[in-house]
């Protein structure tokens, strides 16, 4: 059974460390070219269709800025 996921990212609290990107099994997240109020290039989804909602990004996010949803496809 395939799953489809989605992230809600608190972009203002994201510090753009990029640790989550290394944890993503499907390479569906990356850092934005834009910056938030603190000047960090925040996290964004780069390939929404590839996200499976595994929460790997969220469990290694030091700032707890990622909320994860997963639905059966």
């Amino acid at each position: 059974m395939a799953f489809k996921g989605a992230l809600v990212i608190d972009t203002e609290k994201c510090k753009g460390c990029g640790v989550c990107i290394t944890g993503c099994p499907n390479q569906c997240i990356g850092l934005s070219k834009k910056v938030n109020a603190k000047g960090y290039n925040y996290l964004e989804m780069t390939a929404e269709d590839k996200c499976i909602g595994c929460a790997s990004c969220a469990v290694i996010c030091p700032d707890g800025v990622i909320e994860v949803y997963r639905a059966k496809e």
Binding site: A6, G53, A55, I66, E67, Y69, R70, A71
Partner: peptide
């Protein structure tokens, strides 16, 4: 997808 029943984290 973003609905309370689908929340995992």
């Amino acid at each position: 997808i973003i609905k309370p029943e689908n929340l995992v984290y």
